[in-house]
């Protein structure tokens, strides 16, 4: 990771203490600190100025930094990204907000055909230090297009860094790193965890490329990211009651993928379960499992399992709890990989 050392951050480090805050507040603090630290940073998106964003992630920032740096954009997602490309040509570091996951598709061309390729296309001459923030995932009882997990489209695209965050500390540090990174970074924020609280130390840095082992265990490796990290940790606690020891990995970076951390864990446990909200077909779980099979086939003691959204469009809110992977479905997959009694055996 190449990041530009920033003197202003050092100043902040000296004065900031660890505080308890929500993920939303942590993201707000990260954006505020980034705007403070670098005059080239600006925010652009729908309703992010006067309203402070539909999730209030940018609350108060327009008042503090002005309408030229916290820009309420017209309702055009392709325009938000494409305009930011032009700003980056002129030396700015735009942080774009796509209001909801399901609204990113109109911007697909600008992201995959422009943002992702300009560095490659120009032989490294043009950098695209855009940060594209997207609240993603379900579980909030929303209407259609507000609960999607489109991360695989972008992880599939060369030239983009795709990261997720799972807790307030991770959200703060990852957002700062994303904005300082000279590559385009898409940050997927788990909207149903926006109000979860945690300790945040603003001096902690993140690297945008490594997974982290959140809990060590010996019987199976459980890989999650974004909103399901909390669910995976809860599943690990529940598994303890059955005497099963789960190692929980938060992938964090979806592209590039930290296959070493996953492989090292699978070599220890011999079993792998991957979970995410997105449909499983051609997904992050497809890639994680393929990587593990390539990297540590000889250490696998059972076929890897996955627990994902079904291969359907996101369903109506009334049945989303059946669609979303929960503790019980995860533990059922753990049982399968351990050869314990499970739902499919019963069927």
């Amino acid at each position: 990771m190449t990041t530009t050392p920033n003197p202003a951050v050092t100043t902040a480090q000296a004065t900031t203490q660890t505080t308890t805050m929500t993920m939303a507040a942590a993201l707000n603090a990260a954006l505020r600190d980034a705007l403070e630290a670098d005059p080239d940073v600006l925010l652009i998106g729908e309703d992010i100025g006067t309203l402070g964003g539909v999730f209030r992630i940018t609350d108060g920032l327009k008042d503090r930094f002005g309408a030229d740096r916290v820009i309420d954009s017209p309702l055009a997602e392709s325009g938000i990204i494409g305009t930011s490309v032009g700003m980056a040509y002129r030396g700015m570091r735009p942080v774009c907000e796509i209001q909801f996951d399901g609204f990113v598709y109109p911007a697909f061309d600008q992201i995959v055909a422009q943002v992702a390729r300009l560095h490659y296309r120009t032989g490294g001459t043009v950098q695209m230090p855009l940060t594209i923030r997207i609240p993603f995932g379900g579980g909030i009882g929303a209407v259609e297009h507000h609960s999607e997990s489109p991360e695989a489209y972008f992880a599939h695209t060369p030239g983009l860094r795709v990261v997720t965050v799972a807790d307030p500390q991770d959200a703060y540090s990852t957002m700062r790193a994303a904005i300082e990174c000279s590559d385009p970074v898409m940050v997927f924020e788990p909207k149903r965890r926006y109000w979860s609280k945690g300790e945040v130390d603003t001096t902690v840095t993140a690297d945008l490329s490594s997974a982290r082992v959140l809990r060590t265990g010996t019987d199976a490796t459980l890989v999650a990211y974004g909103p399901l990290v909390v669910t995976a940790l809860e599943a690990a606690v529940a598994a303890e009651d059955d005497g099963i020891s789960l190692e929980v990995i938060d992938l964090r970076s979806l592209s590039p993928l930290d296959r070493q951390t996953v492989a090292a864990s699978v070599r220890r446990t011999g079993r792998l379960v991957v979970t995410h909200e997105a449909p499983g077909n051609v997904s992050l779980s497809s890639e994680v499992i393929a990587s593990a099979v390539e990297d540590c086939f000889d250490h696998l003691e059972a076929a890897p399992e996955r627990v994902t959204g079904f291969d359907t469009p996101y369903p109506p809110a009334a049945v989303e709890d059946h669609y979303l992977p929960g503790i019980d479905r995860i533990l059922d997959a753990v049982d399968r990989t351990l050869g314990r009694r499970n739902s499919r055996e019963a069927a």
Binding site: T83, Y89, A113
Partner: peptide, 19 residues
């Protein structure tokens, strides 16, 4: 990509104005 560069020109122009 037909028309994609129009956004880039506008963004560049917005940045020169801001500067």
């Amino acid at each position: 990509i037909i028309g994609a560069q129009a956004h880039h020109a506008v963004g560049y122009a917005m940045a020169t104005k801001a500067q």
